[in-house]
Design a protein around this nucleic acid. Structure first.
Length: 312
DNA sequence: ATCATCAGCCCTTTTACTTCA
DNA sequence: CCTGAAGTAAAAGGGCTGATG
């Protein structure tokens, strides 16, 4: 995304770039929602000696094709600290099995991995002492888990028909809590979870895939909102700067008119910040300066204090 | 070094199901 | 109560990548 902040003579209107720079699947894989994002501001000429790998070449082409030859300046807009995850987890301590390969690797291992031997009693296929089913039987007479079970069984029997399986609330909640701890699963975790929930490993895998997709979608929405606000802020700032620039230009025009008159030296008292003027020689060739406190611009050749707006 | 295979992931689409006007 | 549109979630399909033989 590109945000334009124009400060020059011919301000360009803001222009959002619809298409993203090409991202390789590998980069997609590496990217994570908590890593923040950037906004590009185009305000300058290309810097010589910049690295030009393939992607940058592609990006450069994109800018050029849009008629904008300015390379972007990146602004990090998101806080670098990821939003802390709420870990009020009723299922904390799910005994995550770790694969043979990930010993010492914490990416998928639960911090509480060996804490408990908590077991969910779903009994989808067994029925028997299913707490959730008993509760649901009492509440609405519908045994959601058994529905799910029977559908799954149908699918197993028919094979060809794709029956929609609705996961029970308990299954969803447990998967959700698992996802909070690890948004990806290693094969052992997947198998353990599937066994625990009486689901097929493929179902667990698919559920995690879809869950990641939902997370990404939500994050994209959040990012979008944030960028919108940033854009509004920058637009307002741009408007303010444009206005200030116009004022200064107008001031300079007036100033050039007064340049025709005999020069006057303006000085600002550093302590009281008042501007005073002293008349220069009649030759008029000597330029004088005063400092606009507000803008830091140099103003030359001001006439008498009576007509000078900064004078007291 | 190159190729084939496999597993895992992401993205997109399909489809079953739910909700609501 | 019925119905159809809209929304949601589970699942499938295809493409890509890295690991392995």
């Amino acid at each position: 995304m590109e945000l334009g902040l124009s400060l020059g003579d011919a301000p360009k209107p803001f222009r959002f770039v619809e298409k993203q720079p090409p991202v390789t699947p590998r980069q997609r894989r590496i990217s994570r929602p908590d890593l923040g994002f950037c906004v590009d501001l185009s305000i300058g000429r290309p810097v010589a000696g910049e690295k030009e790998d393939d992607e940058e070449k592609i990006n450069q082409r994109d800018y050029e094709s849009d008629g904008n030859e300015d390379p972007p300046i990146q602004l990090d807009l998101l806080p670098h600290n990821p939003v802390p995850r709420n870990l009020t987890n009723p299922y904390q301590g799910f005994p995550w099995p770790s694969s043979e390969n990930d010993e010492g690797e914490d990416r998928t291992a639960s911090p509480n991995s060996a804490a408990s031997s908590f077991q969910m009693e779903f009994g989808l296929y067994g029925g028997g002492g299913n707490i959730s089913c008993q509760r649901e039987q009492m509440e609405n007479g519908v045994i959601e888990s058994e529905r799910a079970s029977s559908r799954a069984s149908d699918e197993d029997e028919n094979g060809s028909t794709r029956k929609k399986l609705r996961l029970s609330k308990e299954q969803s909640a447990f998967l959700e809590e698992s996802f909070k701890e690890h948004n990806t699963l290693n094969p052992k975790q997947k198998l353990a979870l599937a066994k625990q929930l009486n689901l097929r490993p493929r179902q667990v895998e698919v559920w995690f895939q879809n869950r990641r997709a939902r997370t990404k979608l939500k994050q994209t929405e959040v990012d979008c909102e944030y960028l919108k606000r940033c854009c509004e802020t920058l637009t307002e700032e741009n408007r303010r700067l444009q206005k200030e620039l116009q004022e200064l230009r107008a001031l300079k025009t007036t100033d050039s008119f007064y340049m025709q008159l005999p020069a006057t030296t303006l000085t600002m008292c550093p302590s009281c910040e008042r501007v005073t003027s002293t008349s220069a020689g009649s030759s008029g060739g000597k330029s004088t300066e005063a400092v606009s406190k507000r803008s830091g611009f140099a103003i030359t050749g001001r006439p008498s204090s009576s007509s000078f707006p900064f004078s007291a």
